[in-house]
Design a protein around this nucleic acid. Sequence first.
DNA 1: CTGTTTTGTGAAGAAATCGTTACAGCGAGG
DNA 2: CCTCGCTGTAACGATTTCTTCACAAAACAG
Lengths: 228, 228
Amino acid sequence: MQTVLIVEDEQDLAELLAFHLEKEGYRTEVACDGIKGLEAARSILPDLILLDLMLPGLLGTEVCKLLKKSEATQRIPVIMLTAKGEEIDKVVGFEVGAEDYVVKPFSTRELLLRVKAVLRRSAGEPSEGPVITVGPLSIDTERHQVTINGVEIGFTTTEFKLLHTLVKRLGRVQSRDVLLRDVWGYNFVEDTRTVDTHVTRLRTKMGEAGELIKTVRGFGYKMETDQR
Amino acid sequence: MQTVLIVEDEQDLAELLAFHLEKEGYRTEVACDGIKGLEAARSILPDLILLDLMLPGLLGTEVCKLLKKSEATQRIPVIMLTAKGEEIDKVVGFEVGAEDYVVKPFSTRELLLRVKAVLRRSAGEPSEGPVITVGPLSIDTERHQVTINGVEIGFTTTEFKLLHTLVKRLGRVQSRDVLLRDVWGYNFVEDTRTVDTHVTRLRTKMGEAGELIKTVRGFGYKMETDQR
DNA sequence: CTGTTTTGTGAAGAAATCGTTACAGCGAGG
DNA sequence: CCTCGCTGTAACGATTTCTTCACAAAACAG
């Protein structure tokens, strides 16, 4: 059985989360501020942490950074809970190293899906460090720097986030919907070519490495694994 | 056929929703206030409830809480309809255990998509992992990849969905109607050879493994279990 | 064995998706 | 107030993919 640590100061919400997660068969622990969250994480070593961004005592982002610094807790995946308008950019840009994030108010369904997805994944793959490399492409999430064959390339914020999201989910197809939600923060959109346009821009800037981004017709895009 | 209960006091909206849902092939029931909604839910046990937040008589949140308390209705998913500005911030759906929520004014399309998503999930194909294997055939839904004896084969969107559906329901015959509904999203169709054509293409691309797809004359197609 | 129904299949027109370019709005920084 | 860079949208082909249709093949019933 897997354990989920919930770090959230609104008691109601924390309880609800715990309720739903337990209904799905997870064991849960709750901590109501940043410090306690950190302590709890270190002592019980949960399989996943749901971390509120706005916390009394110690901000969620700080907690997350600290977790990622320590050997013991480094590999525990973190899903950030953010209110709309809070500095999602930082979380997404991944100066913080969270696996995923969800914007409040969110639906039970969505959160549970993400929890499941993250847990399923973390079973196999090691969670990566601050620098991710795919073939000739290397992206440093802390510095917001991308190099291809050692040459640094300038990307805009949106481009970087898009690229990062694709790389982070290496090999897995991301639908336009998902990308719009995770990169752009749109909650619901019908039919836009925005993603396509940005992919084109990415590919152009990436030169040859642009071919790493593969179109999956009818579904979305994915970053090619370099193994071949 | 699945039933959706609509609990909404604005008659116009309720009718509009009912109309669209029926067009999509669902049966609908309408209740115009909280009390009646609760009664209806208990007597007809719908597969899904669309629940307005602001209801005369009994607030939507209360209705939802009560539903979740009772054994019989506990598992019925609820989608909350909330007006903008209503205390969504309190994560309306959450405190009360709703599966999802939609903010008014919403597009019909959006609502329908959510309804489908929720129902699909609760109708529960066994929540399979990302990779399914049958004999020499292996399909990875996350990567959108199919391999036969280790060799990757390219499938188009529809082909992939069709194959996935057949594999998901291993050994069970799927009628053309069902396939058209689940793969193509068509609701009412008469006599089309589209499915046949696609099955042919699947078989061709699959080579020897194509024999795994069996024709059940007069009924439809099924994916053979590999034991023999 | 024969007639009838159902399924397989190839080709061609119809439709959908995607890549790309151009452009206008917006905001930051001078 | 102006300029410049970033973004999202629209538009237009170019392809790819889907659907339909016609006919062949196979299964079935009597």
